[in-house]
Simulated assay, not measured.
Amino acid sequence: MATFVLVPGLFMGGWAWEAVAAELEAAGHRAVAVTLPAEPAAGLADHVDAVAQVLAAEGPGTVLVAHSYGAFPAVGAVDRQPELVSRVVFVDTGYPESGESVVLSMPQVDLLSGVTGDVVPVPKEIPAVHAVPEAEHERWKRLAVPQPVRTVTDPIELTGAWLRVPTTGVFCLASRLSIEFARSLHATGMPRFAKLAEPGVTFFELPTGHYPMLSAPKELADVLERAADGGGVGLYED
């Protein structure tokens, strides 16, 4: 059985993973959902530290799962301790390069337009395209917290050690991410996308929106189990 460490995206805490964690635990796995520091003064390094502390506590062989923004603190943590992680699973997100910040890597999303003081306010709702059930949507609106602004403006510093770790990408099709899109990135020949076609790198697609932990937790848990065993397809496999 595997140990999964689950890292949330923007505005969310470990609560977002409750249904997925329950599915994994029912199948005999261990699931640890991380809640990242939400204090306005927190920076990206604080979030990296939080994930790194959980990895150190769990020990070698952990499957590290990162949703959306969570890829930044997750990659930062595994870059420090690659020997502790058997696989990184990216849920509907890419991975950063050293020196990048969230706002620089996502220019299409104007995260800073509504900044109040030291935090990015919680959006009013999850768009309908993501098909989050009403009860989960209401829970999200009740529990979501503002994002410390430095977590999205601080650049991440990486040695590249994390690149040795096998990875899996889970693409949510309603977000317009897909294996075909990953192929187009690899085809550019840019060094940052070389890892996409390496041995040990696999992919899944889910017919969901950006929040599968809220809209399809059973299906996501099934994919995470398969990813832990090296399942999925390579970039150029049918």
Rank of each mutant, 00 (worst) to 15 (best):
L112Q: 11
V201R: 14
K141F: 13
A131L: 07
L185N: 03
F171V: 14
V103G: 06
G9T: 02
R164M: 10
E237V: 07
D154M: 13
E39M: 05
G43H: 14
P37Q: 08
E136D: 09
G209F: 14
E134Q: 07
A182G: 04
T168F: 00
A77D: 08
V5Y: 00
L163T: 15
L173Y: 02
H47D: 11
V102N: 05
A56N: 11
A16W: 00
E58M: 13
A187R: 11
Q108T: 15
G209W: 12
A26Y: 03
A2S: 10
A50Q: 05
A41E: 15
T159Q: 02
A26S: 14
D110Q: 15
S105F: 03
H130M: 12
T188W: 15
S215P: 07
V85M: 00
H47W: 09
K124G: 10
F181E: 10
M213G: 02
T151F: 11
T159E: 03
G230Q: 07
S98L: 06
V132D: 11
P127Q: 10
P166W: 00
S175K: 06
F171N: 15
D46F: 06
G70V: 05
P121V: 14
V165T: 09
H186Y: 12
V65R: 00
K218I: 14
L10G: 08
P166N: 15
A174T: 04
R30W: 02
R139Q: 07
C172Q: 03
S68W: 07
S215T: 05
P123R: 09
T35P: 07
L111W: 14
A2H: 15
P82H: 02
V109N: 12
A161W: 08
G14D: 06
F90V: 08
R30M: 03
P73R: 07
G117L: 08
A2P: 12
P166H: 04
G234E: 15
L220Q: 09
V91T: 12
A38D: 11
E39P: 04
V48T: 13
L84V: 13
F72E: 07
V32A: 01
L44M: 09
P123T: 08
G200A: 06
D92W: 06
V152F: 04
